[in-house]
């Protein structure tokens, strides 16, 4: 099972790549939309990058729940756990 801290760093990399913000500017509770200028296109870009990397499919109803890095980590962690079982 993937370590949560490793997962957090990997997802942080994805968000940094897409948003252009430095890793150290992305804190667990940074609001992705308001503080990192994540618009609709970037929200899709991040979702698709996560889906590709972890071979999962994020449900439509789960997308709006991702407000911060922590939200994304929890969601992916949960899905990977389910997949593992």
């Amino acid at each position: 099972m993937i370590d949560k801290k490793v997962l957090e760093n990997e997802i942080k990399e994805i968000i940094s790549d897409v948003s252009g913000y430095n890793l150290e500017e992305i804190k667990p509770n940074t609001n992705l939309i308001n503080e990192l200028e994540i618009d609709s296109i970037k929200a899709i870009e991040i979702t698709v990058a996560i889906e590709k990397k972890y071979k999962i499919s994020v449900r439509d109803e789960d997308v709006p729940k991702i407000v911060t890095l922590t939200d994304a980590v929890e969601l992916v962690y949960g899905m990977l756990n389910q997949k593992g079982n």
């Binding site: 939309i33 609709s40 970037k42 929200a43 979702t47 698709v48 439509d60 997308v63 709006p64 991702i66």
Partner: peptide
């Protein structure tokens, strides 16, 4: 204008 509601259209 909420980005996440548009993500659902992908």
């Amino acid at each position: 204008t909420n980005p996440s509601s548009f993500s659902n259209f992908r």
